[in-house]
Design a protein around this nucleic acid. Structure first.
Length: 294
DNA sequence: AAATCGTGGTC
DNA sequence: TGACCAAGATT
């Protein structure tokens, strides 16, 4: 008698997802590929809970790429609000303009075409293809990398990203069927986000616990290299945030004194203001005042 | 290829 | 309380 064969990961994850998936607005029926793309931009390094209300408002205001492209950058940055990394908002705006003019206002379904858009890297391109169009392609984000590291490789956590190898790992797990592959991809991410979490994984509730290489190995703690935690207090990132917050909160242009109040250290303040101008996140008017870009 | 880029919640 | 973390991309 042949030994029992464990069902492929997808066999247990896809049914689990059908029951356990969170009801997120961009997962609801009728969400367009554009809606998926907007959600993916917003979710880059930003938690779901903070994205939800902004996404809903965004899609109501700008339901198509051309609608967003027609909006002034100042409106876009205000709508982005405090999601963080506001350059994402500018890149999404640029990507929308490209889609409107080059792709007939239709979000590309092809991974390479997607990756050519500003702000779209390997993860986002594949996420849009898979979740927006149901394509069969490996989707690798931090959650998926952690799930693979544990369930497949038996490691406590994923090391530094290795794009090619990580993609190959996930390719090997991807079901042949197109629709099932897309569901498998989102299910892997959902598992990493809600069960196989970074800090305190809820292994007792894990649908894959019987087959998890990490649990089988006794849940060894990760001892590999970690990326250094990012400092924030006192960094340029904080100062830029403060300055931009002043511009966002004002109804019109502000004078330099208003920005001076946002941060005490003049040298750092000036350097950061200059970097905001360079990034196109702020503009200086002829009268010397500052504002969000037109 | 390591550093940079916001913001806020959690344990 | 402060380190760590959250659907990355870019240079």
């Amino acid at each position: 008698m042949p030994p029992p064969v464990a069902p492929p990961l997808a066999g247990t994850l896809v049914p689990w997802y059908a029951v356990a998936a969170r009801d997120l607005p961009w997962r609801r029926p009728g969400t367009t590929p554009w809606g998926v793309m907007v959600s993916e931009f917003m979710l880059q390094q930003t938690p779901v809970a903070r994205v939800e209300p902004v996404w809903l408002r965004w899609m109501a205001d700008w339901p198509t790429p051309s609608a967003l492209a027609a909006a002034p950058r100042a409106d876009v940055l205000r709508a982005w609000g405090k999601l963080g990394y506001p350059r994402r908002a500018l890149r999404l705006h640029e990507a929308a303009a490209t889609i409107a003019t080059v792709h007939d206002d239709i979000v590309p379904a092809d991974v390479d075409a997607l990756e050519a858009l500003p702000g779209v890297g390997s993860y986002t391109a594949r996420a849009v293809a898979a979740f927006g169009y149901g394509r069969r392609c490996a989707v690798v984000d931090t959650n998926v990398r952690r799930v693979v590291a544990r369930a497949v490789h038996g490691a406590g956590d994923a090391g530094p990203a290795r794009v090619r190898a990580d993609l190959a790992d996930v390719e090997a797990l991807l079901p042949a069927d197109e629709a099932e592959a897309a569901t498998f991809s989102i299910a892997m991410m959902e598992l990493g986000a809600t069960v196989c979490t970074a800090r305190t994984p809820r292994c007792a509730a894990c649908p894959v616990r019987e087959r998890c290489a990490w649990l089988a190995a006794g849940a060894p703690t990760y001892d590999g290299p970690r990326r250094a935690p990012q400092a924030f207090a006192g960094t340029d990132r904080q100062v830029r945030g403060r300055l931009l917050d002043v511009l966002r909160g004002a109804t019109g242009p502000v004078d330099r004194a208003a920005l001076d109040r946002a941060w005490a250290d003049a040298a750092q303040r000036d350097r950061c203001l200059d970097s905001l101008l360079v990034d196109g996140l702020a503009e200086q008017l002829d009268d010397g005042r500052f504002a969000l870009p037109a």
